[in-house]
Design a protein around this nucleic acid. Structure first.
Length: 290
DNA sequence: CAGCTCATCGACGGATTGTT
DNA sequence: AACAATCCGTCGATGAGCTG
């Protein structure tokens, strides 16, 4: 049987992209790591990495093996830490990045049943994608497509939008879509950002009119936006999940069913391409797709 | 082309394990 | 307890390939 140390060395080589890097990480010398790797490759019967002058590149067999063992090696590492520091969880926390709204409205109900400790870091899409690239997160839940080949996205759910307003406005909403733009422009608006990308797309693309409503509040927090709508500050277009609780509680009203009119956002799980086949991340994607 | 990084090889040593 | 075998590590040398 291949040694557990061999697998730990293999994972270290895979992640650092070099034998010497893995040696530093494992507190071994370069030849020692090279020997461990050679032993594992002999055991597997084929090369796990292609050697290059600037490091090593995993072969298809290497990628497959990594997907099979990486999670277990991480768990072993944490179990080992737990032995040295009693009281810590033996489960490696999965490190996720997203906005508070995504956690609250979308992710939490779906990941609650995952048999895995989770550590969530809040931040806008740009920041959590940067943290993912830097290796301080395992996955990011975003609606922005990542740039570069080292990150890969898997869409887990479309995010439809809802046009909401204060509950008292519902009775006055015009009957036809043609009258809706003028009606909304005569009122105030609450938004997540000053750029209003979704709102402007809704007005110009769906209503065929320029957005001209008075902006009563701009706050980069969807829960604050929905709360402001409930308090009567104005109408807004928000992701439906963010408004669902307030709609159910009749704190806000859906002014028009726009979910079929505004293309849904693409909500995706982004992981490092090297981790694409990791069993725990595949389980995360499966849980989020439910 | 020199300097650098990186992987690999052979020689050797220490620790552990098995045998007598 | 003593010895041999084995394992796994380090050290030093070497060769390949990239870069300025």
């Amino acid at each position: 049987m291949a040694s557990l140390d061999g697998f730990r060395v293999f994972v270290a080589v895979y992640r650092t992209g070099s034998v010497s890097g893995a040696a530093r990480e494992r507190h071994l010398t370069q030849p020692a790591v090279s020997a461990q790797l050679a032993a594992l490759e002999a055991r597997v019967g084929e090369p796990l990495f292609t050697r290059t002058p600037r490091g090593v590149v995993p072969t298809e067999r290497g990628k497959l093996l990594y997907a099979q063992v990486a999670d277990s090696v991480d768990r072993l590492a944490l179990a080992d830490q737990g032995l040295r520091r009693p009281g810590r969880s033996v489960l490696t926390p999965l490190r996720l990045g997203m906005t508070p709204e995504v956690l609250h409205g979308l992710a939490l109900p779906r990941v609650a049943r995952l048999d895995r400790a989770l550590h969530v870091t809040f931040g806008p899409d740009r920041d959590v994608l940067a943290a993912l690239g830097a290796g301080t997160l395992d996955a990011a839940l975003v609606t922005t497509a990542p740039e570069g080949r080292h990150l890969s996205a898997q869409e887990v759910a479309p995010v439809p939008y809802a046009l909401i307003g204060p509950a008292g406005w519902r009775a006055d909403v015009p009957d036809t879509l043609a009258d809706l733009a003028a009606w909304l422009n005569a009122r105030s608006w609450v938004s997540y950002s000053v750029e209003l990308p979704i709102t402007r797309r809704f007005f110009t693309g769906v209503l065929g009119a320029r957005f001209a409503a008075r902006q009563a509040l701009v706050a980069p927090d969807l829960r604050a936006v929905v709360r402001a709508v409930a308090l009567g500050l104005g109408a807004s277009v928000v992701p439906a999940y963010a408004a669902q609780e307030a709609l159910d509680a009749a704190q806000v009203a859906e002014l028009w069913p726009v979910h079929a009119l505004i293309p849904a956002a693409r909500w995706s799980v982004v992981v490092r391409t090297a981790d694409e086949e990791r069993a725990d991340l595949l389980a995360l994607v499966a849980a989020l797709k439910r």
